[in-house]
Write a protein that binds this DNA or RNA. Structure first.
Length: 429
RNA sequence: GGAGGCGUCGCCUAGCCCGGUUUAUGGCGCCCGCCUGCUAAGCGGGUUUGGGUUAAUCCCCAUCGCGAGUUCAAAUCUCGCCGCCUCCGCCA
């Protein structure tokens, strides 16, 4: 969440910044008023509480000196004030809770470099690779679900039989391709990122820390019996690894990579991009994550985007980098770059990575701080996350891009070590 | 799932039975100062983290795993939960 002090000290700039994200300025004004009221209520409560405590101390002193009558009198007075304290306390807590609930629903402030805009159409294409568009043959113009079923790689029907639609089931070479991609990705980040295998089901608090709750409850799978949530991305558990902790600045940046399944209900996307692997409820993804100081964050953002891009280049997939406009970013982000690969069979740009700098927005929700080497009080860390990469759509792009006239599919050479050297999926015979 | 033990200010630790002179004891570490040819030792002071208030100091509130309760008053009593350890049961 954003720093409430910013709302107090510079209401105008918060109004402007959140306005760029489509937040009604009146909402910000309302927050400022609630905050002022909450502080006043807490002050009233604390004053009365101080009185109760002072009287209670005097009761003890009177008791010790044997003045029972005086002790009883003081206790009675304290009792009377206690009733007032209780009602003031309820009011104070309600007022504070109201501020927090409002704060939890407000998005992060967009960065100064973040492009303006009102929707996806205002995202800026920062760059493309390769410099000139790739050429595609007729053989590559076959959608992956056709290639997948023809070669026995993907069985959406049986997936649906087990779990309902949009739960893919990969077979044979198709399943091996996924495993190869995960190994390839983890190995290529091992130089700087510690590999982690976190749980895929998490507590409510863990989901709140990243910003996925309370606002986007409808998008997540929830196990009611145990009150656990299926993670929509490894960003969720990784953010909470140091929740509530104070790190040493010397340990920053702290870089992690994790391969997990990701679960998304896609509640708001009914009927959109439903074919094949374009949009699925469960997919595997390798995530990059970092805790950093504010100074380290910008360079880390660039390096994480560069890593994701490097993988796409290694895989030989055409892509473009989108600099997301203020209105299209996720709730926690202040700056986001999306990577989209061009997939010739479906003739679409597919989002396969989203790299975000969340400044201290998530750290404040999760209360993750670091102790500055130079001294001074602990400060909130900055968190960054990015996919490198999301496999379902990468799988689609690889299978479509690699398809040859004879129906076989050539896989990227970089995966060879992970495929026992078998980089060609033979044509159906 | 069952039985028992434990969770205190960076680390260790006292306090809990028997609620109130506790602003939570002491040690280690760390910071500042004194002393000193230098270092060590010694001496004095400081050292949880939030919030409120203030020009700043002061002061006030919260914080002894988390939450609720009892009480004029809770680290201390009661209940619930979480985590760790030991043993048992079950189990890949």
């Amino acid at each position: 969440m954003i720093d409430i002090r910013l709302v107090r000290d510079d209401l105008e700039s918060v109004r402007d910044a959140l306005g760029r994200r489509g937040v009604d300025p009146k909402e910000v004004d309302r927050l400022a008023a609630m905050d002022a009221e909450a502080r006043a209520a807490v002050g009233r409560r604390d004053d009365v509480r101080a009185e109760v405590k002072a009287l209670s101390r005097q009761v003890g002193e009177a008791r010790r000196s044997g003045d029972t009558a005086r002790a009883e009198d003081l206790a009675a007075r304290s009792r009377a004030i206690g009733d007032e304290e209780r009602s003031l306390n309820v009011a104070a807590e309600e007022a504070q809770d109201e501020v927090r609930q409002t704060l939890l629903l407000l998005p992060n402030l967009p960065g100064t470099d973040t492009p303006d805009g009102v929707g996806p159409e205002d995202n800026v294409v920062a760059r493309s690779w390769p410099d000139t568009d790739m050429e595609y043959t007729e053989a590559q113009r076959v959608p992956h679900w056709e290639v997948g079923s023809e070669l026995g790689l993907l069985d959406m029907e049986r997936g649906a039989k087990l779990s309902g639609s949009m739960f893919p089931l990969y077979r044979g070479f198709g399943a091996r391709l996924l495993r190869a991609l995960t190994s390839f990705a983890l190995d290529s980040h091992a130089d700087e990122f510690e590999e982690v295998r976190p749980p895929t089901m998490v507590l409510t608090e863990t989901m709140v820390s990243t910003g996925h709750l309370p606002k986007f409850e409808e998008d997540a799978y929830h196990l009611e019996r145990d009150d656990l949530w299926a993670i929509p991305t490894a960003e969720v558990p990784l953010t909470s690894m140091w929740r509530g902790d104070v790190l040493d600045e010397a340990d920053l940046p702290l870089r992690l990579t994790a391969a997990t399944a990701c679960f998304r209900r896609e509640a708001g996307a009914a009927g959109r991009d439903t074919r094949g692997l374009l949009r699925v409820h469960e997919f595997d993804k390798v995530e990059l994550f970092a805790y950093a100081t504010p100074d380290q964050a910008p360079a880390l953002l660039d390096s994480m985007v560069a890593r994701a891009e490097r993988m796409l280049q290694d895989l030989g997939l055409q892509y473009r980098v989108l600099d997301l406009c203020a209105a299209d970013m996720g709730i926690s982000a202040s700056r986001t770059f999306d990577l989209e690969v061009y997939s010739p069979g479906v003739d679409m740009w597919l989002e396969v990575s989203s790299v975000s700098w969340c400044t201290d927005y998530q750290a404040r929700r999760a209360n993750i701080r670091y102790r500055p080497t130079a001294g001074g009080p602990p400060a909130f860390v900055h968190t960054l996350n990015g996919s490198a990469l999301a496999w379902a759509r990468i799988w689609a792009a690889i299978v479509e891009t690699g398809r040859r006239a004879d129906g076989s599919v050539v896989l990227p050479e970089v995966l060879s070590p992970y495929l026992r050297g078998e980089t060609v999926i033979p044509a159906a015979g």
